[in-house]
Design a protein around this nucleic acid. Structure first.
Lengths: 223, 223, 223, 223
DNA sequence: GATGAATGAGCCTTCATTCAT
DNA sequence: GATGAATGAAGGCTCATTCAT
């Protein structure tokens, strides 16, 4: 029917265009994880996305822009994820901190492929101001959120602890644990990593966090 | 003296070659820090080292080998540095842990240029097994040393703490603080970073480490 | 007419690509003849074909493949030529042998440029198995055809001659005469060369071939 | 002893120099046969001769000169060989022609390695005047010698044969049979090749050469 | 809107050659 | 006399990008 065609077609087109865009970004993520940043070529990306080579230049003005958009996609996805984790109603500050830790090691954001891409971008950041800007903004948001929570905990418990420093310590610990997954996937343990973070929190804020029980870590814990 | 000349001459030849090699590695480090991994070309490296382009392939069979040797140089330098820090006689286990923290934030190893290079290699590690191997070995050495120290502290103090996990937490925290220097150099503070680590240690091992005093962080602390 | 346009358009695209391919092969032949095998660079080839340098790698995966395809083009062209020469209806075996000799010295296949290219490939054959394979197959086809003809003549005439050896002798004589054209173009004579072959045939098969008349060779016979 | 040293040394030096030169030429021949003309580099040659790379440029002004001297060495060796074959006293013209055929298929000059080198030079001849000159001179000498012999035979036997053409036919046949050894070593037969030449001679000059007996060629005749 | 032939820039590498030792 | 570090030129190839279709 002409009417359906008229309303469906324009939608379909715009939709399809967006789908292709997302496919290209996904393919870029895959390629960076598999081949590294230096060996990620538009040829490989378009092959992964099953589209013609020149289509990449059609959707993104340049390779650089594809990369930036990929990084943006990554940060957006990450922000959405942790924000959702702490917006659950009825959560105390400490509960939210716990939720952040859980989110940071959730397989959806903390898997080897995505970590590899994060580190690939970080590795190139120093020489590419745009990357650094995007990374920094994402970082600052996450940092602020965490700092607000530690500040609340400090205030509640009357701890003699620098809340900002405490937050930074936790954040950095998480980043470092991600690196562990990247470089030594065999020795990475998802639950163990969370436990390390919680130990840190419990040590700093004993009246808000429970020291995790000493668990015999099972050999070959799945990452 | 003729003898000295006789011994100096043969040294000069081999020495000069080695000097050139080191210059090339240094130039590679500089280039990766300045231009990133992907845009580090042999042209840039040779230009930085003030030598002809083909000389690179004379000293190193391929670009890949130059990069691997550069990474190796980096790990060697790092290992030498922290090892020297903990071999000072008369140092307790806790003292050695403190020394490790100091070493990790010493400007000689913890400056933005070198951190950028570390992260550049880590960023490419997933897709280059050789890099990962070299990185992992270096990491394991450092981890083992640190774990031995935390185990000693745990034993001494009778703490109910998983020594391996405690060490891993510290190590990851340090890696994450390095990333802070890379991505947000403005907000990085050398002393503040050490303090965060020491807070972690003091919280876990209160009878071995003193909680650092709350210091008003000076605005714009120089990295 | 729209129909013609519709059929002409799709042809045009594929056609143009094929035309460019053939131009590149022709340019390769020219370059090998002019500059030799060792000094035939893709730069020279693309310049001769008036196309960009990278186009060569677009049509042929590598330089090596361009060379192989050039050799194949040569053998195909040669085979087509001599096959057509002996498929003329109503030709006796002896007549076909004569036709083969004529074909082998026809200016279209026996000119200094093409002979130079043949010898260039033969010169590299020993160290390049692919060339040898292609050359051998072409040779074997030609040899088989010729052997069948000599066998027929031997059977018809009841000659006490090894048909295979006779064919090989003729074939080798032709190859050697080609070399004469390559190395001593001044002393090469097209008709004289055919006469030498026919003398060989007439000496072996007197009842099938006429001994060519002794001709006063004109001085400086044009090749 | 000083005296012996004084007399032996200078001789030894010049000798050694010449020895090295010959080694380099031999290594060049080997390399061309093994790697082809295009892939024969001074590096490979010096490695084969077990000398330092820059020594080649010391003994020969340039690579080109090394190649020319190698070709000259080849032609000299060949000339010496066939000349010696026909200077045996008490040999008739026909006997000398037979001796030439024997020489041309003697393993010392007719083996796959040397044939490969001949063809390598011939393959490059068209674009390198120097090679062509050297080749042509060698060819002309051989041709003249053979023409003198066929002329003698023609005169002796009163044959109605063009002596020059007959010689050219034989020469070309030999060159072509060499190519057979190069391209189809499996089907090459040393004795069979001589027989083909002798059949040609016997067919042209029946009163001077005996038609070789029809021999059942053994399968897999050793080249 | 999407394809694919074509381009130009640039990279890694190799090679013949030189020069100081 | 011979070595080996060093050079400059050039070659093959890949890549991001454009343009006609």
């Amino acid at each position: 029917m002409p009417q359906r065609a008229a309303t469906a077609q324009p939608l379909k087109r715009a939709e399809k265009k967006e789908v292709t865009r997302q496919q290209l970004i996904a393919a870029t993520v895959d390629s960076i994880a598999a081949s590294g940043f230096a060996e990620t070529t538009l040829h490989k990306v378009s092959a992964r996305a099953n589209v013609s080579r020149s289509l990449v230049n059609f959707h993104f003005d340049s390779k650089e822009q594809l990369l930036v958009e990929t990084l943006r996609h990554l940060t957006d996805e990450y922000r959405t994820f942790w924000m959702k984790a702490i917006t659950r109603p009825g959560l105390s500050a400490a509960g939210k901190l716990n939720a952040l830790v859980d989110a940071d090691f959730h397989p959806q954001v903390c898997n080897r492929k995505k970590i590899a891409v994060w580190y690939a971008f970080w590795g190139e950041s120093k020489s590419r101001p745009t990357y650094m800007e995007v990374c920094e903004r994402a970082d600052r948001e996450f940092a602020s959120a965490m700092e607000r929570l530690t500040a609340e905990v400090v205030a509640e418990g009357g701890y003699a602890v620098d809340a900002v420093a405490a937050a930074k310590g936790l954040r950095c610990m998480i980043d470092g644990l991600w690196l562990e997954l990247l470089l030594s996937p065999a020795s990475f343990e998802r639950e163990g990593s969370k436990r390390i973070c919680r130990t840190y929190l419990a040590a700093l804020f004993p009246r808000h966090f429970e020291m995790p029980g000493q668990v015999e870590m099972p050999a070959g814990g799945a990452p």
